Measured scan of single mutants.
Amino acid sequence: MAAGGDHGSPDSYRSPLASRYASPEMCFVFSDRYKFRTWRQLWLWLAEAEQTLGLPITDEQIQEMKSNLENIDFKMAAEEEKRLRHDVMAHVHTFGHCCPKAAGIIHLGATSCYVGDNTDLIILRNALDLLLPKLARVISRLADFAKERASLPTLGFTHFQPAQLTTVGKRCCLWIQDLCMDLQNLKRVRDDLRFRGVKGTTGTQASFLQLFEGDDHKVEQLDKMVTEKAGFKRAFIITGQTYTRKVDIEVLSVLASLGASVHKICTDIRLLANLKEMEEPFEKQQIGSSAMPYKRNPMRSERCCSLARHLMTLVMDPLQTASVQWFERTLDDSANRRICLAEAFLTADTILNTLQNISEGLVVYPKVIERRIRQELPFMATENIIMAMVKAGGSRQDCHEKIRVLSQQAASVVKQEGGDNDLIERIQVDAYFSPIHSQLDHLLDPSSFTGRASQQVQRFLEEEVYPLLKPYESVMKVKAELCL
């Protein structure tokens, strides 16, 4: 049975990233139509530049190519590739079939990587351009969430054990800070992308030097003109047959890092959902379990974690691919890159769409948070109580021993009897502590235990987050809708 299948058929496997999760716009960027249309555009740009620099290419040939950029006979191309065992030459023939007058000058002087690699770089750039505003929107939604809850005390956790208090907004800023680093890295790697350009079979530009009869300047002009037509500021000066596969490492490393950030955020949300302090959106008709109707599973956060793990592992592909590119190139890269580049971007696209949807509907339960604080705060307040007693004339050592005994009794009630923490009640009825009984409410005010959390939130948002989001103001209103 021949390899390949009808990918629109229910009898043929289709990647869930495309069929179930990723956005239509990201799927289109990695589609065959987008790819092969870009090949034709690159052939047109090459012909236009070659004509401008004096090669015998007519206006009629150029116009014929322009008129057929979208006229792609995919069936013919597939048949040609089956016959020739070469995808680029299959599309040269297919393009030439609908451009008979231009057929002889299509791909003039070029090698397969002229269309293959340059198209990949265009796709990487455009895919990054799709991700950047999506990530900015996630940051914006979380920034709104953090600002609104900047002063809401909550129990902090280290080692997932109760620690000092923080605020809900401050905790959210930990998430935002990681995503801001990801946004900066995505922008950097996007701006650092260079075009492969017009380089020939081993990167020496020998074929173009021959076409222009040894004119170095025209060869350099050709490279520059096509690079500018493709919208790049610069091209690699040095290439082998391909652009260095280190570029793929750079791009997928940034995406993998984004995956790590999203995994951490969504894990926190899942843990908070278990504590009943916070939940992701839950639709009115949504079913959490087929057997347990009360369940409210954090399905979206779980999906993000599941896909983020996949995204983090994909960076190993370009690392290994770059390491086995012998001399000017081997074909070890080809099949692998067809999979890992598309999957990385479709996965990143999915987790950003999902995280935006989550961040637009996060639900906080202040009463649950308050109750958990009441359970733990008495123990945390013991040092403040000791200091207040010393100020009232008591002995630190005597007070410490009193607190120690009462704390152990209260802990026994919590752990052995399943009761509430009654340390404060014990202190309130103990005559030894009568000098500070009137101060206990103040000493137990949760806001006095959150330090500068709310001020940190305000400063972080104003100095770091809002300036970073400013270039994306025009796209901030787009909502994230999930079908599944």
Rank of each mutant, 00 (worst) to 15 (best):
G4P: 13
G4S: 12
G5M: 11
D6H: 00
D6K: 10
H7V: 12
G8C: 13
S9A: 13
P10D: 10
S12T: 07
S15E: 11
L17G: 04
Y21C: 04
Y21K: 07
Y21M: 08
A22Q: 07
S23L: 09
E25G: 09
E25W: 07
C27F: 06
C27K: 10
F28I: 05
F28D: 06
S31D: 15
Y34C: 08
Y34A: 12
K35G: 06
R37M: 14
R37L: 11
W39R: 03
L46H: 05
A47K: 04
E48Q: 08
E48Y: 05
A49Q: 01
E50D: 06
E50G: 07
T52Y: 12
T58L: 08
D59V: 09
D59A: 07
E60G: 07
E60S: 13
Q61D: 13
Q63C: 05
S67A: 09
N68K: 03
D73Y: 04
D73A: 13
K75W: 15
M76W: 11
A77T: 08
A77C: 00
A78P: 12
A78F: 09
E81K: 01
E81W: 01
L84W: 12
R85Q: 05
D87K: 00
D87I: 04
V88D: 01
M89P: 01
M89D: 03
A90G: 14
T94H: 08
H97K: 14
C98N: 08
C99M: 13
C99Q: 01
A103M: 11
I105C: 07
I106Y: 04
I106L: 10
H107G: 02
T111C: 00
Y114H: 02
G116F: 07
T119N: 00
T119W: 11
I122F: 09
I123G: 08
I123C: 13
R125K: 15
N126E: 15
A127T: 05
L132H: 14
L135H: 06
V138A: 10
I139T: 15
S140V: 14
R141Q: 15
A143N: 09
F145C: 14
F145Q: 04
A146G: 03
K147F: 07
K147T: 09
E148M: 11
E148F: 13
E148Y: 05
R149H: 08
A150G: 10
A150E: 04
S151L: 09
T154L: 09
L155Y: 04
L155H: 04
G156M: 02
H159L: 03
F160K: 02
Q164A: 14
L165E: 01
T167W: 03
G169M: 01
C173M: 07
C173D: 02
L174D: 12
L174Y: 03
I176S: 05
Q177L: 14
Q177Y: 05
D178S: 13
L179S: 12
C180S: 11
D182T: 02
Q184Y: 07
Q184V: 08
L186I: 14
K187G: 14
K187S: 15
R190Y: 05
R190G: 09
D191I: 09
D192N: 11
D192W: 08
D192T: 15
L193W: 10
L193T: 09
F195C: 15
F195H: 03
R196F: 08
G197N: 00
G197E: 02
V198K: 00
V198N: 14
V198C: 14
G200C: 07
T201A: 06
G203N: 00
G203L: 04
G203W: 01
T204L: 07
A206P: 09
A206E: 08
S207K: 05
F208L: 12
F208Q: 05
D215I: 11
D215G: 15
D215N: 06
D216R: 08
H217M: 05
K218G: 12
K218I: 06
K218Y: 15
D223T: 10
V226H: 07
V226M: 15
A230M: 01
A230C: 05
A230D: 05
F232S: 03
F232P: 00
R234D: 13
A235S: 11
F236Y: 10
F236A: 12
T242G: 07
Y243G: 12
T244H: 15
K246Q: 04
E250V: 08
V254C: 13
S257P: 05
L258T: 09
L258M: 07
A260R: 02
A260W: 00
S261T: 10
I265F: 11
I265E: 09
I265V: 10
I269D: 01
I269L: 03
R270D: 00
L271C: 11
L272A: 01
A273N: 11
N274Y: 02
N274A: 12
L275F: 03
K276Q: 03
E280W: 01
E280Y: 03
E280V: 00
F282G: 14
F282R: 02
Q285K: 06
Q285L: 05
Q286L: 02
Q286M: 02
I287Q: 06
G288D: 01
S289R: 00
S289L: 02
S290D: 01
S290T: 07
M292V: 02
Y294R: 01
K295P: 02
K295S: 03
N297I: 00
P298V: 00
R303N: 05
S306L: 01
H310D: 03
M312L: 07
M312C: 06
V315P: 06
Q320S: 13
Q320R: 03
T321V: 08
A322T: 14
S323I: 02
V324C: 09
V324T: 08
W326V: 04
F327M: 03
E328C: 14
L331T: 00
D333C: 04
D333F: 04
S334C: 09
S334H: 14
A335K: 00
N336I: 12
N336T: 12
R337F: 01
R338A: 01
L341T: 10
A342F: 15
A344P: 10
A344L: 00
L346I: 15
A348E: 04
A348P: 02
A348Y: 00
D349R: 04
T350S: 11
N353E: 10
Q356D: 15
Q356F: 00
E360Y: 15
V364G: 03
Y365F: 15
Y365I: 13
Y365W: 12
P366M: 05
P366A: 06
E370L: 05
R371I: 00
R372I: 08
I373S: 04
R374H: 08
R374T: 08
P378N: 00
F379V: 04
A381S: 05
E383R: 03
N384S: 07
N384Y: 06
I386L: 05
M387N: 08
M387Y: 12
A388Y: 05
V390Q: 15
K391M: 13
K391V: 10
K391D: 05
G394V: 04
R396F: 04
R396L: 07
R396I: 04
D398L: 11
C399T: 13
H400P: 00
R404D: 00
V405C: 07
V405M: 04
L406I: 12
S407V: 03
Q408C: 04
A410R: 01
V413P: 05
V414T: 15
V414C: 00
K415L: 09
Q416I: 11
Q416N: 08
G418M: 14
G419D: 03
D420H: 15
L423I: 11
I427M: 10
I427L: 15
V429Y: 00
F433A: 04
P435D: 08
I436A: 04
I436L: 12
S438F: 11
L440G: 05
L440V: 09
L440E: 03
S447Y: 14
S447A: 11
S447M: 10
S448H: 12
F449W: 08
T450W: 05
R452P: 02
R452I: 10
A453L: 01
S454Q: 09
Q456I: 08
L461Q: 14
E464S: 10
P467T: 12
L468G: 10
L468F: 07
L469G: 04
K470M: 15
K470L: 14
P471G: 13
P471F: 14
E473L: 11
V475F: 15
V475P: 15
M476L: 14
K477D: 06
K477Q: 10
V478A: 13
E481Y: 15
E481W: 12
C483R: 13
